[in-house]
Design a protein around this nucleic acid. Structure first.
Lengths: 118, 118
DNA sequence: TCAACGATTCAAGGATTATTGAAATATGGA
DNA sequence: TCCATATTTCAATAATCCTTGAATCGTTGA
């Protein structure tokens, strides 16, 4: 994730509807969600959700794939992880004071990485 | 850090000049930098830097404090850490797949938090 | 008090982004 | 083929954001 991508990602996440969409897609995992379901649960019009989905895709945070009549959108976990990493490393310079709370979260949710601490 | 603050912070970081300013302020630490120095190093006009500094302050990412004729801006480490935490917890749901790369960074830059893993 | 310095505020403009509803596209089934 | 479904695209409008330069404000030292 370079600065260009990070700027786009921050812009994409700075809008309420889009942040809501990302959260839903993260929760729904690899199965993703159809555009219509997203629109329904986010309570926005089809054309409006399409606009925001395009924006999220342009930022690399989600991907799409047609499944019969529906278009399924899926969160790009790699990009989201990359953004967190960008924020910690490139933006905050790996500063311990800033990263500490993140490390605490990481300890809780990603036990697999404990090995990397040896 | 609640969603309202996170949205503002994402918006603040989605602009090249502002991202540049944050990086400089993180590096300069508690000493911070005067508005004039920031403008000079970011190569933008005084009024323009003032506009962006106000935006960053509104988002809670920096604080200001007058020092004689200068106004010194300082990065708010707590807010930056809070944003990373928001991204990991609230937005990404603590999903291990997403948080893994962050945990790897945390392992390198914040050894003090190792204790929290016991 | 006055001039100079460091910075902000303001108004105007240009540029980008968001919302809306109508029209167009693609797919699947009768 | 024709219709219904799922979604996108388009054009128009509204809203927000960025940039610029001139004017203003607060501080310091002569």
């Amino acid at each position: 994730m370079d600065q260009r991508q990070a700027l786009a990602a921050f812009g994409a996440l700075s809008q309420e509807t889009r942040l809501h969409i990302i959260r839903m897609l993260v929760v729904s995992g690899p199965d993703g969600m159809a555009a219509g379901s997203i629109a329904e649960r986010a309570e926005v019009s089809p054309s409006n959700v399409s606009f925001h989905l395009k924006e999220l895709e342009r930022a690399g945070l989600i991907t799409q794939q047609r499944e019969s009549r529906s278009i399924i959108y899926t969160a790009n976990y790699e990009a989201l992880g990359g953004l967190i990493r960008f924020l910690m490393e490139d933006c905050c310079g790996g500063n311990a004071e800033i990263c500490a709370p993140a490390a605490a979260v990481a300890a809780c949710c990603a036990p697999a990485t404990k090995e990397e601490l040896q």
